[in-house]
């Protein structure tokens, strides 16, 4: 009988193949690592792709300065464990250089990550950024290539993408242009959780149910933090929540949940009725075309 890979093995093998193509074709790639669950899957895949050698690329975090301290601490520990190199590209540095100008002091900084990322790409002369985006996350992503071409300004042109056939990836670029490579394009949120369970991956603890002060605002749950304080008329509640994505504090919302293990999260994910971005990325809800717009401007 012909043996066939199970769906997780297949997805993993595809992702390894993509990473090795990046390593084989690009002269100076980098892996974007946020400490979030998708990028943790990328790290495990990189281990499977390149061990016992070192990763043929450094890791890079585009840091908005608005992070949960647990996540940053976790990020640094993980990097040390792996013995790999981490570059931190800081939005606050771009602010002090004057290349990022906030509209108001407490404005969410997520969208400015694009600017800092592009600066870091230019400074380090990266020709490829490996990211953990998935096509099931959001409408505009469903059409994204696995190796997605960006022009000198980091722009994505959805109407003029390079055709991508079979598993033949064309990562060639001129100087100044670059490729965004997405090895887990074909994974769903469920696949990610199943992989985390199978590989026994450690995650920042805010992914698991914990007590937190929150307020309910326009149907979303907003964590109470120094960057997202409660307004005077709002009621602070202490509830059991967990995060489904981790990122900039000002635009990542937790969900009510008592799931405190990966297994319980999988059960919850299986019966969940709200998609990941819709529920927890406050910035995508603004308009139907928000993500597409940001991607055109050079977002991940």
């Amino acid at each position: 009988m012909v043996k066939v890979l199970s769906h997780l093995d297949w997805l993993e093998s595809e992702a390894i193949h993509i990473m090795r193509e990046v390593a084989g074709q690009c002269s100076n790639p980098v892996l974007l690592f946020s400490g979030g669950k998708d990028s943790l899957c990328l790290l495990r895949i990189a281990e499977k792709a390149f061990r016992p050698g070192r990763f043929p690329f450094p890791l890079m975090h585009v840091d908005t300065g608005h992070n949960y301290p647990e996540v940053i601490e976790f990020r640094d520990r993980k990097v040390a464990e792996l013995g790999e190199r981490l570059i931190v590209a800081s939005v606050e540095e771009s602010m002090s250089k004057g290349t990022v100008v906030l509209n108001s002091p407490n404005e969410p900084r997520n969208k400015y990550q694009s600017i800092t990322l592009l600066e870091a790409i230019e400074e380090n002369i990266f020709d490829c950024c490996i990211g953990g985006a998935r096509r099931d996350e959001e409408k505009a992503r469903a059409k994204e290539r696995i190796m997605s071409f960006r022009d000198e300004f980091g722009q994505w042109d959805p109407k003029n993408q390079r055709p991508e056939l079979w598993d033949l990836y064309n990562a060639r670029v001129h100087k100044g242009e670059n490729i965004r490579a997405f090895p887990i394009s074909n994974w769903t949120e469920m696949d990610v959780w199943q992989y985390i369970a199978r590989e026994n991956l450690e995650l920042p603890n805010i992914y698991f149910a914990h007590q937190r002060d929150i307020i309910k605002r326009n149907g979303s749950i907003v964590p109470v933090t120094e960057f997202t304080p409660a307004r005077s008329d709002e009621k602070i509640e202490n509830l059991t929540v967990r995060f489904r994505t981790v990122g900039d504090i000002t635009c990542t919302a937790p969900v009510l949940s008592s799931a405190d293990t990966v297994e319980k999260i999988i059960l919850e994910t299986a019966s969940t009725i709200i998609s990941e971005r819709g529920e927890t990325r406050l910035d995508d809800q603004m308009s139907e075309a928000a993500m597409e717009q940001r991607k055109k401007e050079g977002y991940f």
Partner: peptide, 25 residues
Amino acid sequence: GLQAEREQGITIDVAYRYFSTGTRK
């Protein structure tokens, strides 16, 4: 998917979708 499609009401590029039945992905 994309804005241009929404405007023109047509599909202009390959899009990928996922579902899983428990039996298969």
